[in-house]
Computed example of a mutant assay.
Amino acid sequence: MNIPSEFDPIRPFTPEELPAVYDRLLADPQFQQVITSLFPGVSLEDLGKKMKSCKTNLEFQKAFCYPVLQDLIHKASFGCSMDASSVNINHRYTFVSNHRDIVLDSALLDKLLLDVGFSTTCEIAIGDNLLTIPWVKDLVRINKSFTVERALHAVEMYKASKRMSEYMHFVISEKNENVWIAQREGRSKDSTDNTQAAILKMMVMGGEGSIIDRLAALHIVPLTISYEYDPCDYLKAREFQLKRDVPFWKKTPGDDIESMSVGIKGFKGHIQYHCAPCINDWLRKLNASTPKNQLFDSIAKYIDTQIHYNYRLYPGNYVALDMLQGNKEHDDMYSPKQRSIFEQYINGQLAKIDIENKDEKFLRECLLNQYANPVKNYYNARDAESSRLKSLMSKLTFKF
C-alpha cells in the first residue's frame, strides 16, 4: 500500500520495514532480556527465527503478543471478556475508551478483537512521552501503534494534531484497520471518565464535509473498560497527595515505567470490555447548525453516557461507595465476606504507599473514590439514558 510520506514520523512500521527492525531489536541487550523472560526455555536464536518468519505486523501480534497476553490473563486476573454484540466484526471502527492502564487497555483490546472474530486488530494512539526508550518505540511501532506528539508549541501542535487526524481517517478508509484512542489525554486518576472535547476537535481536522460527516467517517464506538481491581490505584493515590503537597510536582519518565510494570504484573480480578453501538446513527440526528463548541460538548457527553452506562460494576465498587458515605445503602450488592475482602484489599494498597508526611485519611479517600466513582457515573448515565428514551417516545406520532 502507498502510504503518504507525511505520515512517516508517526505511523507504525510497514511489513517491508520489519526485517531491519527485527535485527535492531535482537541486537539490543535490554530487549534480549525482556523477550527471553517472556518466553522461558526458548533460545534467543529460536525467538529470532520465529520473529523473522512474521511477515506482517498482525502475524507478529499473533505469534508473540497474543500468547503473552493469554498467559498474563491466566496469571494476573480471573478472566477477560468482551461484549461486541453491538458491532459488526466485518466493519472497521474507531474505539474511543476510558483509560485505566497505560499498556493493557489497548493490548487486551487487540487480543479480544481477534477472539470475537475480527480479522484484524487495531492501530493504537500512544503518547510520545512513553517512547523515550528506543527498543520500546520500535516494539510498539511493530505492534501497530502510531504516535501522539505532545509538549509542542502552538503552531507545531496544530500541525501535529492535523496530521494525526488525517492519519486516523486514512487508517479507517484506506488501510481498512481499526483505531483505538483514549477519550482523554492520560489516564483518569479517579475513575471519573470524561471525554475531552479536544479529542473530538482533533478528529475533525481530517476528513471531508461537516463536523458530523467527519466524525461519522471514523465510525466511533464508545468502549468501556472495566477492571475489578486496578493494580496502579495506590500509585494514582500517591500522585494525588504529591500534587497536593509538593509545588510544581510532575511525573518523571521513571514514574511512567513504574506504572507500566505494576499495571502489567499486578492482579486485576475480572476484566470486561463492552462495545456500545457505533454513534453514527445518533450523530446523523444532530442539528448540524448547532454552534461548534456546543456540538462537540453534546457529542462528548453522549460518548460519556455510553461508556458510563456499560461499565461492569463489581462488589468492590459498591463497597467503596458505602465506605465513603458511611452507610450500607448498597449492601444488597455485596456479601459481608465480599466487603471484608475489599476492605482488606484497600488496607493492603494503602500500606504500599511510601511518601513523606503520608496522609492516610486523604489517601484512603483517593483509593475509595477510584472504585466508587464508576457507580456514581453509572447512576447518572442510567438517568440520562432514561430521560433520552422518554424524550424520544414523547416525539413519536402514532397514525391510525
Rank of each mutant, 00 (worst) to 15 (best):
I3P: 00
D8F: 14
D8H: 13
R11I: 10
T14P: 00
L18M: 12
L18P: 02
P19A: 14
V21T: 13
D23R: 12
R24G: 03
A27K: 11
A27L: 08
P29M: 09
Q30G: 00
Q33P: 00
V34L: 15
V34N: 02
I35R: 00
T36M: 10
S37H: 07
S37C: 05
S43M: 09
L44R: 01
L44F: 12
E45C: 04
E45Q: 12
D46Y: 10
K49T: 11
M51P: 00
K55R: 14
N57I: 04
N57Y: 07
F60N: 01
K62D: 01
Y66T: 08
V68I: 15
L69H: 04
I73A: 10
K75Y: 11
K75N: 10
S77N: 10
G79F: 06
S81I: 06
D83S: 05
S86W: 02
V87I: 15
N88C: 08
N90M: 06
T94V: 15
F95D: 04
H99I: 08
R100S: 06
R100D: 08
D101H: 03
I102T: 11
L112N: 04
F118L: 07
C122T: 09
I126G: 02
L130W: 11
L131Q: 06
I133N: 08
L139T: 13
I142A: 04
V148A: 15
H153A: 14
M168I: 10
H169Q: 03
I172D: 01
E174W: 00
E174Y: 02
N176R: 08
Q183K: 05
R187G: 11
G207Q: 03
L215A: 10
I220L: 11
I225P: 02
E228L: 00
Y234K: 01
E239Q: 08
F240V: 08
L242Y: 04
D245I: 14
W249Y: 15
K251C: 07
P253F: 12
D256Y: 06
S261T: 15
G263Q: 01
F267I: 01
I271Y: 07
I271M: 12
A276N: 12
W282H: 10
S289E: 15
N293R: 03
L295I: 14
S298K: 13
S298C: 13
Y302V: 07
Y302K: 09
D304I: 06
Q306T: 05
H308V: 04
Y309F: 15
L313P: 09
Y314C: 00
P315M: 06
L324H: 05
N327F: 03
H330E: 00
D331M: 03
Q338N: 03
I346L: 07
Q349L: 04
L350Y: 04
K352G: 06
N357T: 04
D359S: 09
E360L: 10
E360G: 05
L367C: 02
N369S: 07
K376T: 14
Y379C: 04
S386L: 07
L392M: 13
M393L: 15
L396S: 10
L396V: 15
K399P: 10
